[in-house]
Amino acid sequence: MLNDSEFATLRNRFKRDAEFLMQTATNGDEDEKSQKEKDAKPLPRINRHSIFWIVASVGVTYYVDFFHNIIENEDIKSWWFNVGLALLGICLSLAMFCIVYLEWFKGIRHYDQEYPAIPPITTAAFIAASCSILYFLCSLNMALWPVWSFLTPLILFTQFMGVVMFISLLG
């Protein structure tokens, strides 16, 4: 076994080596980050991924006759559907408030400087919306299962992604 002086020497050597490795790693990372920041271009708002989901959503809407089934089908469980619609309305109204009113009409790009209460409110709304979106999707799946059976989650997921990508194009 090592005695105390040999142990202290070994520990000091590892400490020096670790400091040296940390210095070289941080210097290399800073050079890479600064080069990446120089080369970075802003991502285009319209890209293939967004277009794919929007087109897929429109295609699914047309192919399964989505609106006709929602309005006219009597197999839909109305309580679950109404809960899902209410949660969707809350989420969309929060998004439209931030995108349309604050950004388009007011011209505010940095919400937190103009309205310091917005970050905590949007954080709370995002957490609530995350829970409500999960509940919304579950309730719509349960409401529409009698209509499309096992295809219901795929149809609703495609619709959801199309709406999300469309909203991302607005903001």
Rank of each mutant, 00 (worst) to 15 (best):
93 S>G: 06
44 P>T: 10
67 F>I: 14
38 K>N: 08
110 H>E: 15
146 P>C: 10
143 A>E: 09
145 W>F: 14
130 S>L: 10
115 Y>M: 08
6 E>C: 02
160 F>Q: 03
157 F>Q: 08
170 L>D: 06
150 F>W: 15
81 F>D: 11
15 K>N: 13
45 R>L: 15
152 T>D: 09
44 P>L: 11
74 E>G: 10
16 R>M: 07
38 K>L: 06
65 D>G: 13
134 L>D: 11
155 I>Y: 14
67 F>N: 06
137 L>Q: 12
19 E>P: 01
35 Q>D: 08
138 C>M: 11
122 T>E: 01
167 I>D: 03
94 L>K: 07
151 L>A: 14
47 N>E: 04
3 N>F: 11
44 P>C: 00
98 C>V: 15
122 T>M: 02
154 L>S: 12
91 C>I: 12
21 L>F: 08
52 F>E: 03
96 M>R: 05
145 W>V: 01
128 A>D: 03
78 S>V: 08
102 L>G: 05
49 H>T: 10
75 D>R: 13
9 T>L: 12
58 V>T: 06
126 F>S: 07
46 I>N: 03
33 K>P: 01
16 R>G: 05
65 D>R: 15
139 S>V: 04
79 W>E: 07
2 L>F: 12
7 F>Q: 09
45 R>S: 13
3 N>I: 05
90 I>L: 13
92 L>I: 03
19 E>S: 10
12 N>M: 13
170 L>H: 09
11 R>H: 13
141 N>V: 06
137 L>H: 13
147 V>S: 08
33 K>W: 11
108 I>N: 09
108 I>D: 09
88 L>C: 05
80 W>H: 15
67 F>D: 07
1 M>C: 10
161 M>V: 02
146 P>A: 11
132 S>Y: 06
